[in-house]
Amino acid sequence: MACGLVASNLNLKPGESLRVRGEVAPDAKSFVLNLGKDSDNLCLHFNPRFDAHGDANTIVCNSKDGGAWGTEHREPAFPFQPGSIVEVFVTFNQTDLTIKLPDGHTFKFPNRLNLEAINYMAADGDFKIKCVAFE
């Protein structure tokens, strides 16, 4: 996957939210939004797969602790389309992260690393970030 935008020193605290808007490529196979402490310590690896790794239209979420992946979580909702603009809203809490998808569907993913702040965000794959907002 092409290396996308990397943001650091975000200092997002529990109770705060992050809104990310970007363009999904017309021929998108998959994209990634990573959140955490750094590239090896991710409290959320958010990976919508249009057609990748044997998955079709599935969101795969995971965590990475000291470089080691955790257990995958598959979310059946898939309100994404290649060639469109998508917005994902993530609320960070001490115990979990709440992810709100473009159609309003929300789900939770546990904060397995017990991170006290999110300082790192990276996008990868067929997705170009255009707007980042903190709330």
Partner: peptide
């Protein structure tokens, strides 16, 4: 102090 840093932008 650095408050926010972005690399790999495509502007």
């Amino acid at each position: 102090s650095v408050k926010f840093e972005i690399a790999n932008m495509h502007v």
